[in-house]
Amino acid sequence: MSTSERIRVVIAKPGLDGHDRGAKVVARALRDAGMEVIYTGLHQSPESIVEIAIQEDAHAIGLSVLSGAHNHLFERILEIMKEKAIDDIILFGGGIIPDDDAEILKSKGVAGIFGPGSPLRDIVDFVKGNVKPRM
């Protein structure tokens, strides 16, 4: 994408999970890398997360799930994105997600999964390298 356009990322906590250390750290790292970051806060429904991303004209949604409900939540958000014919927002995420589940989620359309210990630099580079330019 062009260097003049600022990347906008929605960092979201879907479901009932209350662990937001990772979400906040990633939000801060993306911000420090020059991106505009909207953090949703806790306990968001999949519907409201997609809605926020549309309203904010986001390039990416980053989900943080440590509750074990990742399969349901990621897939539900992909489903809503499909229903709304959103094809210019990438979905990525992290949390306590076993490798096998991460592979399945990626095969279904999640662009990247970052587990515990992922370097912040990798996440920043991933977002920069994968967001889609706007027409």
Partner: peptide
């Protein structure tokens, strides 16, 4: 709202 979360953590 419990969907996907029952018995998980």
């Amino acid at each position: 709202v419990s969907f996907g979360e029952v018995g998980k953590v």
